[in-house]
Nucleic acid binder design. Sequence first.
DNA 1: AATACGTGGAA
DNA 2: TTTCCAAGTAT
Length: 377
Amino acid sequence: MRTPPDLSPPPSASCPNPTIPETAAVAPLLLAWYDRHHRSFPWRISPAEGQQGRRADPYHVWLSEVMLQQTTVQAVIPYFQRFLALWPRVEDLAEAETDAVMKAWAGLGYYARARNLKKCAEAVARDHAGRFPDTEDGLRALPGVGDYTAAAVAAIAFDRPSAVVDGNVERVVSRLFLVEDSLPAAKRLFRALTASITPQQRPGDFAQAMMDLGSTICTPRRPVCALCPLNDHCLAFRSGAAVESYPRKAAKKDKPVRKGAAFVARDQAGAIFLRKRAESGLLGGMSEVPNSAWTSRVDGETGLSAAPFSADWQACGTVTHVFTHFELQLSVYSARDLAALRRNDGWWEPAASLSGAALPTVMKKAIALAFPDALSP
DNA sequence: AATACGTGGAA
DNA sequence: TTTCCAAGTAT
């Protein structure tokens, strides 16, 4: 029997129902469910293969986990396939041009992930002879690898019994233990509770099973408790609580609106004038069309006077784009048939390569509004 | 602890 | 239409 985790506060403090789930029963039930209902993804091996001693490739697991941070599986799969085709091994990624990595990541969002992905690949190639560290602590020290990713790679690729806590797991655990504490303040409690049900055997399958359960059965809105392998042990379900109201979360802040102007210039050959953004911060390291500052101030300059150079700018309309912490209303201006004069603040991206450029979605929207055919491949 | 950091799909 | 949010990390 395992030592009970150090819970602070203990589960009874946050559970109106004093009953503690029979934690030892959870993992076997969940693993049996996973054997039958696991999902297949390009970065996974099947549980049958796993029980024959095979392990998923740590490079594949790491790459998928970084891509999956705050990102849906559906969005990730084509990117994962392209990255593996371009860079089959971590050493290949380490030797890649950073700009090529940014181009391949374009559209996936949270671009600091791509910058850190490259740094991490370099660290693994240079400091670890191309082998990922096989412990949670070793992984945690890599760029872009936080608590979750370190635990996930350690469990899935190296069979370590680490507590893998992502949004799915938080949801499952909050219901299983009827946790009244709110996120994100209760992160520590969720980690301890997850550790209390994580098995020594098949910890990687257990982690993936928790995530599959969370995304198919124990869903945010309409959980399908009748089909849940853990329903007999779930305090939320057994107590008749509103299961979908867990986990408790802190109230969200509202999104301010910012405004700006973007300038899409095209030359006689169809090339578009682009610039490179600063390496850090919003859309860091990505390409852009010239644009004004994005401001919430009513007296901010969001019109023609922010143009990068003089031209016959025509107003095309407005693009609305929602970022994590603000909404952007971008006034778009276009100019056509310009002479492709050499400038030191950017370059003319040829029409043929524009769709493959390192353009974040908001910039593609602006270009598409100005020249609807510009991004056609 | 609180905030910055993208995007697109589902209800 | 609006809201929520999906396998988080860095600072």
